[in-house]
Structures are given as C-alpha cells and as structure tokens.
Amino acid sequence: MCLGVPGKVLSISDDGMSAQVDFFGVQKELRLDIVDVPVTVGDYVLNHVGFAIRRIPPEEVGETLALFDQILKEAAAGDLMAEDVRGEMAAGKGGGESGRG
C-alpha cells in the first residue's frame, strides 16, 4: 500500500524541518516532521510521499539479512527433520503431518 524508498541524508535545513536526501543519484527534499528519531547527515531514512517516516539504523540492515539467513537455516534443518520423518513413514513407522489446520 505504501511506496517507501530508502535514501541517504545529505544535509539538514537550518530550522531542522527538512533534509536534502539522495536516492542513489537523484536528490529530493524530505520533511522531517514525522520521522521517529532525530536524523543526522549520513543517516538512511525511509521516504513516503516526501516525508521521512523512519531513520533506518545501518546495523539493522545487516540484522535483517542475518534474520533471512537464520530463516533459511531453520528451514534447512526442518527439511532434514522432514526427511527423517519421511524415512520413518517409508519404513512403516507412521508420523508426519496430520492434515489441514
């Protein structure tokens, strides 16, 4: 529903109400009325309709990727378990998923 694009703060106006933000090659002024925490030059912010709606902490970019790797790892572990279960089923030991939830 809401188009949001991250950009890098280049400068902040004297009154602190707006910032010039770079979106990988084009620049646009964003209002800072509703950003969650104060921003400084070099920060990444999420833009929606000309307003910064969040400062994106750089470390959380890495954390998101780490989370995805974690999800992948858990899925892989789940697969191994599922294979065990299938192996057991093939061996006539029963188990596995029990239909619709």
């Binding site: 979106f23 990988f24 084009v26 833009n47």
Partner: peptide, 12 residues
C-alpha cells in the same frame, strides 16, 4: 540510466 532508475524508484 542510474538517475532514471532512481527517479522511477522514488515515484513508483
């Protein structure tokens, strides 16, 4: 072009 891609991204 990078600038066109950027402007397109911002404007959807």
């Amino acid at each position: 072009n990078a600038e066109v891609r950027a402007a397109c991204e911002v404007l959807g």
